[in-house]
Design a protein around this nucleic acid. Structure first.
Lengths: 218, 218
DNA sequence: TGTATTTGTCACAAAGTTGTGTCCGAATTC
DNA sequence: GAATTCGGACACAACTTTGTGACAAATACA
């Protein structure tokens, strides 16, 4: 359901969290120090970060500065109230005190995830339906096979529908910053999308700039 | 047009940036170290911060944590890719590599300002609507196709509505500083705008000077 | 390992944009 | 009202940008 990064150096606790969050359907990645956490945050998108204050390498406080947009739940030892407050001030969504009731943690995780859920689970225009949960697309009821890149690109267009998106911006959204793509890379993928979905009239070219998905919302 | 803080310790570069942003109509403040940048950000509102990574006092990375809402464009030396990535993760909107093309900087500044425009994302007069996000224009509900230059020109007129704009100023705003435009260039584009939008009565000629878009705001 | 799929790149064709010159009427000045 | 300057109209060629199909490199898959 959600992708969660657990940054906690005590293995049994890390495992405990992972096991229980798995049980309720989340996908978890474990790291055991601050540097690994930062690296992981840079490499992939996470819906939530569970972060111990006392970490080897960069401390939790240093890590949170680089969580940039990812909501954070702090885990602190029971006698470090000042740390807790500091964590919240630095932008944590919540904190939890060790030793903790695992059910309480799960509860808080769900609260935070609910608060941060922004993307709808599906979006339709004309006879095309995009389902973000299953990552499937159908046109006129019939499923259309999209490659991962194509789906990502479509997703970027849907999320930013009715905005003119430059190739640079698309590269940043779908590929990632630093990708040294050929000038025609974005174009080619846009053509493929148009072809597979037959949406030449919706996915328009913005001359000299990029592309725009034109839909009347809904 | 916009209020921009330049935090760059190398005087010639700082001046270069300031001079060029002034030319296209922005108000610039210069600081030369990280502490001054933070102080300045606390004292006044800025629409954009141009921030060198390597600053005396607090580094750019420390400053950005305190930019709090102000969009940031990072300036890094050319061999510091990891810095660039780190900057983006920390919340910079964009980065630019030294030594840079000044026109490229101006371009990126405008892109970021547009993205963060707090002023309306659209503007209407009579039956004409200009949408800056999607870069579309409609007249009486029907979309009108404008070329990039035409749209940029219209944008300049809308942003500076009711001001008499000289051809030189328009060249600086829409083309860029240094463009060696022929006498008829601006005129021709104004004619095309008038024709496509049927706004001869709004987009008036200021004899011997240039043009002015006359609207009663709205 | 071999096969299929996906993804990035290239070269060329097609399409669209834009600056410039010229001509002519309109506005301004004296 | 004549002389002069200025802006409007328009055509067009140079130029830039985008579309297309083929292909090669990378990746996943069995």
């Amino acid at each position: 359901m959600a992708k969660i990064l657990i940054a906690e150096d005590e293995l049994p606790i890390n495992d405990l969290i992972k096991k229980n969050l798995r049980l309720v359907g989340h996908e978890c990645t474990q790291v055991f120090d601050g540097d690994a956490a930062v690296r992981e945050l840079e490499n992939a998108h996470y819906d939530l970060l569970i972060l111990d204050v006392m970490l080897p390498g960069q401390s939790g406080f240093e890590v949170i500065g680089q969580a940039n947009g990812t909501p954070v739940i702090f885990v602190t030892a029971k006698d470090q109230l000042s740390d807790r407050l500091r964590g919240l001030r630095l932008g944590a969504e919540d904190y939890i005190v060790k030793p903790f009731e695992i059910l309480e943690l799960v509860e808080r995780v769900h609260t935070v995830l609910r608060r941060f859920r922004t993307t709808p689970h599906a979006f339709s225009f004309d006879d095309v339906t995009v389902d973000f949960d299953s990552r499937t697309v159908s046109k006129g009821g019939k499923p259309v096979d999209l490659t991962p890149k194509e789906f990502d690109l479509l997703e970027a267009f849907v999320v930013n529908r009715n905005l003119a998106l430059s190739r640079d911006r698309l590269l940043a959204l779908v590929w990632s910053y630093g990708f040294d793509g050929d000038g025609r890379t974005v174009d080619t993928h846009v053509q493929r999308l148009r072809k597979k979905l037959g949406i030449e009239n919706r996915l328009k070219t913005v001359y000299k700039l990029g592309y725009r998905l034109e839909v009347n919302d809904g």
